[in-house]
């Protein structure tokens, strides 16, 4: 009788990839958002001065 193989290592690998890549993307969105917000504030300041 065949027993179910223990492939839990790959399971962990798979889900780790999912969460890590998702996290990287979310962080990238957040960082880009912040940097653009700062640019916007700077530019709006320059614009107001004109």
């Amino acid at each position: 009788m065949e027993s179910t193989p223990d492939t839990s290592q790959y399971l962990i690998l798979g889900y780790a990839v999912f969460f890590i890549v998702s996290a990287i993307y979310l962080v990238s969105l957040y960082v880009r958002n912040r940097s653009l917000q700062r640019d916007l504030e700077t530019l709006e300041g320059l614009d107001a001065e004109k």
Binding site: D6, T7, S8, L11, G14
Partner: peptide, 14 residues
């Protein structure tokens, strides 16, 4: 847990 492949099959959902 899937019988033939074991736990790794769970990645299938995602």
């Amino acid at each position: 847990t899937e019988a033939v492949m074991g736990d790794v099959q769970r990645v299938f959902y995602f």
